[in-house]
Amino acid sequence: MIITRPNHDFATKYLFRWSQTVITLAKKRNILVIDLKGKRASRVELTKSVRKNTADFIFINGHGNDDLVTGYNNQILVQFNDNEKLFRGRIVYARSCRSAAKLGKSCVKKGTRAYLGYTDDFIFYSDAASKFLGPSNLIAKTLLIGETAGQADQKAKDAYARTIQRFENSSVSEKDRELIPYLQWNMEKQVCLGNKNARLKI
């Protein structure tokens, strides 16, 4: 697994911390982890790591847009019509806003086996991060235990759905209930592009 974990702002610090549990699982399963954390979440480091290693799962954390994903200090890592071929033959999970709208589709056309990501902004509450980043982590964790990209997508969505259902119960606090529209948003904007039957070669 190659993972990028910038930590240069409020949002990426959360992704940085929450990714640790995914790294721990990978190591527990004897999967080599190339952890491009902090300033190492750069285009040069990512390119070098992908070219030198046969890691078939690339986990991108950071900001993004319809046509790109970024790393440390929002440096562009992969961009539409530029270097999508970097992801050829791999399964990618981009925990970045919007990139599945355009970049993900192009990556799949150019050989990415499966691209899991979001077609719009990923939104979460800082004091309820587990409700959002927990299901999000399930995508990576499901892949790491050998299940398919489609199963990873579905497991995360099921986790969101269970929380939404629980919070729609009238006995729940207002503090929990107000999360519902945002949980639903992230769930609906999450997609699995490419081969849904793709799984890691582990």
Binding site: F10, A11, N65, S96, F122, Y125, S126
Partner: peptide
């Protein structure tokens, strides 16, 4: 009105736009 009931100190993080 829906936001008004949010606790004051709670932060919502919207992608790259911030908290």
């Amino acid at each position: 009105a829906r936001l008004e009931i949010t606790p004051s100190k709670r932060k919502i993080i919207i992608g790259g736009a911030g908290a």
